[in-house]
Write a protein that binds this DNA or RNA. Structure first.
Lengths: 257, 257
DNA sequence: TTTTTACCGTGGTCAGACCAATTAACGAAA
DNA sequence: TTTCGTTAATTGGTCTGACCACGGTAAAAA
């Protein structure tokens, strides 16, 4: 099954020895003969078995470490890890340093994940989940004038929402975006300086999302969440155009109506 | 911006030499002193400069290769690469493979990706995209009695749909699931033996998805796609319960009404 | 029986050597 | 002076064998 998956990237690299080791390990990791928690045989043995030198073997192990697949433990051995895409935060760090324009595309994945998760949350959220959401919502309110803590509070709300959907895969994917999401939320909070109406937007929108989840209404939850993202994007667009709220802080929704 | 992101994963690894090299290169890559197209000094020199052995330096270079940051060219040197989201394929492939036993949960990611992509497709699909979808739809129809080719045709339709959304991130994510999805579609086609009404379901549902995309109606497209998934799941559930269509091949929708 | 000592095992790293293949430099011939 | 052939240099790919650090275990001593 998983053996049908194809890894193409590393196949382009030079390094016959490296490829041999990587392919050997990839095959076993994908077909399930190596599973999280398993410990590989000692490096010296594995290198001998594969007929490569130990530094080459280590290159392959290090590559798998970066992919989050294994963990090299000093004096213990190399252990297969439970996949956890938080390693992608490293990737995004490098990628966005060179190509900031990629962020908007990556945010499509964020939207996809959260919209599916919020639907699941309407079916799966426990009372405890709702309590945590309520707490996260309260946190947004109390940090409304603090960009640093506020950005974190916003992230926490969205994270809690995804958790409430109880899909481990979606949680893992969401975690892979945690770094860029925290920055994104933090930046969004900076816009409050130009747009006082955002206070209302942040509090009320998150409140509506909560209400829809509590009401177990999947369509409403997704719709409200999508609108939340769209309005957030609009604030960003307006900021880019040099706009500000008028002195009275006209709410965004009334402006659109 | 990107400098605000924090690299935590590799910081946890043992390997002081490795970390030293990685940190050195990371810093220069993030601050722009190393840019795409630049060639690093020869390995021997760089290792001497950093006071580490060459195999250790290579471990770090290999790590950066996996992150898509550099490319090690035989006899040329190590060149800084332009970031490219296709690198994500490796990450996701390993992550999903290890979760394959939780396939229903992995399918939540599939649903998330396709529903977001189909919305984007209603905005972004070109005439060529629509032609490709039309072709893929025709392919579904002509393979309706062949489970092997039919499974591939189904996968191809969904793949084309995601492509039409023109989000690189969503495409990469979807590709990472290709093995799992092809098997899933293949199995779905096997159910036609028990449920003749699936022929109609497959042809008409895919047709409706196409129509909604062509009509540029995001809400309808998503709704139809979600219903498509839900009905597919229902066939699966019924098969698990040992049910079959009656001899006349009653369509599923009329049964639910 | 308990404590101490020594050894083993494993990853982390080093130094130096060799291989392969391309490119550049140098010398000889036209 | 220009061209051609040969040799050397360069760079990554890989190997071998050695040493270091430290935790865990087994054996010896109290």
């Amino acid at each position: 099954m998983a053996a049908d998956l194809e890894i193409t990237r590393l196949g382009e690299a030079n390094g016959k020895g490296f490829e041999k080791v990587f392919a050997f390990l990839r095959e076993r990791l994908l077909d399930g003969s190596l599973r999280p928690g398993d410990r590989l045989i000692p490096e010296r043995e594995l290198a001998a078995q594969l007929d490569v030198s130990r530094p080459i073997l280590r290159e392959a192990l290090r590559a798998l470490t970066v992919l989050g697949v294994v963990e090299i433990r000093d004096r213990v051995g190399t252990v297969v890890r439970r996949p956890d895409l938080s390693v992608l935060n490293d990737f995004f760090t490098f990628a966005f340093a060179q190509r900031a324009e990629l962020i908007d595309d990556v945010m499509q994945a964020r939207i996809a994940i959260e919209c599916q998760a919020v639907r699941l949350a309407t079916q799966r959220a426990t009372v405890l989940d709702l309590e945590r959401l309520r707490t996260a919502l309260g946190r947004i309110i109390e940090t409304i004038d603090d960009p640093d803590l506020g950005g974190l509070a916003d992230y926490e709300f969205h994270r809690t929402l995804v958790d409430a959907g109880k899909s481990e895969t979606l949680v893992v994917l969401h975690n892979s975006l945690s770094g860029i999401l925290m920055i994104s939320h933090r930046k969004r909070r900076d816009l409050l300086r130009s747009f006082a109406s955002m206070k209302t937007y942040l509090i009320e929108d998150h409140g509506r999302i909560f209400d829809a989840v509590a009401a177990r209404d999947a369509d409403a939850a997704e719709r409200v969440l999508r609108e939340h993202f769209a309005i957030g994007d609009d604030y960003r667009r307006r900021a880019a155009l040099g706009e500000r709220d008028d002195a009275a802080g006209q709410p965004m929704r009334e402006r659109k109506a």
